[in-house]
Design a protein around this nucleic acid. Structure first.
Lengths: 205, 205
DNA sequence: CGAGTGACCATAATACCAATTGGTCACTTA
DNA sequence: TAAGTGACCAATTGGTATTATGGTCACTCG
């Protein structure tokens, strides 16, 4: 099991350096092919033709490398979710798409990049920064849809915004959190539609 | 890991027998003190002064004994939730209390009977009958509140009842499912109030 | 016949030791 | 000095020999 101290600088040494990219590249390759646990830091070193010690000039720990890869992964999902939202122009539809996209993309990671999914699972379970940041960004997206909807008159304005954001986030969470998602597979078919409908009903002015 | 075939008779031999009760009693004691895994069938046999083989005259397997204890446990929660609901007289308040009670009681089991909680976790993860039945009973409770609320005019009547039941169940699930609840501890403070408010807003006619 | 069991089996858990692994540091070399 | 490393350590992990466990069955005995 890994440590998870709170502030912890994850990277060190030269911030923008060719070798850092090589490490990230090799790690992405290895982690997604053999898995995070099965990949040793020496493997990564060998892959880029340097010694293991040199890797630690760039990253605080193996977990730090994992966090980087995980952050990329979640960043990809976030971008795609944003794209899905942008395809709609009215807040209610945006919210529907957000639910649908979050679930589909998470599920896709689960079924197509199982190894990376395992990293995401560890990250969520052990509260890596990458996950915390991702969750926060999801809440921000949620809030901005709500704000837009309140402005446009699509959504009610009485309930405190923070509370609404949190409540909807809690509804979405089982399909965001990799570990929980694994235990919600039975419901992935209808959940996004049913839940976003429920949420939208609750938002009606 | 344990098997989990679908229909499986869990008990066998004489349905109502002194020894069966002794077994259940001893199992409750042992499981909640030492945990399900750490308790061997021989331990139970020793506790009631019979041989291990005799226990198998009453139960199909060790898991079957676990299911019985788990069912008792969940049955207790269900009863208490029912009691909490009955304290309110109007459907909206019933629903609020249901959310609150479900979370409080699950949380209580988690913090006070950790060992039994572990059985419930296995049961939920491996889909024991006891869990499936419990979940179904929760949905039934939900539905009856909804029906009452629709009849009384407190709740809207447009959305198909089944869909509403399912959606609300999905909202509640993270706090019902022992494994998921463990990963939702951060939210237990405000979740029931916020979520039941959201759900009630969605039910308003 | 029926309550109850000892002996038995396949598999799962455990205990144990050797090999790896994450991580550091003094050191080389260009 | 800065890029890069071999050698080293404490802690995990992997492999394995052994034990314990879930479960069955032919059998006893009253």
């Amino acid at each position: 099991m890994m440590k998870n101290s709170t502030p912890a600088a994850l990277v060190r040494g030269p911030a923008d350096h060719e070798v850092r990219n090589q490490i990230v590249l090799a790690a992405t390759e290895h982690f997604s092919r053999y898995g995070y646990e099965k990949t040793t830091v020496s493997d990564l070193a060998k892959a880029i033709g340097f010694s293991k010690a040199y890797i630690y000039k760039f990253f605080e720990s193996k977990q730090a490398i994992g966090e980087m890869i995980c952050a990329n992964c979640l960043g990809k999902i976030e971008t795609d979710v944003k794209a899905a939202i942008d395809q709609a122009d009215r807040p209610p539809e945006k919210l529907r798409r957000m639910f649908k996209a979050v679930l589909e993309l998470s599920l896709q990671l689960f079924s197509q990049d199982r190894k990376l999914y395992e990293i995401a699972t560890s990250a969520a379970t052990e509260r890596w920064q990458s996950t915390l940041a991702y969750e926060e960004r999801i809440r921000v997206m949620l809030r901005s849809i709500l704000e837009e909807g309140r402005q446009s008159g699509d959504f009610e304005r009485k309930t405190p915004l923070d509370e609404t954001v949190m409540a909807i986030y809690l509804v979405l969470r089982p399909f965001l959190h990799p570990l929980i998602l694994q235990h919600s597979l039975d419901y992935t078919e209808d959940a996004p539609a049913q839940l976003s409908s429920l949420v939208l009903r609750s938002l009606s002015p």
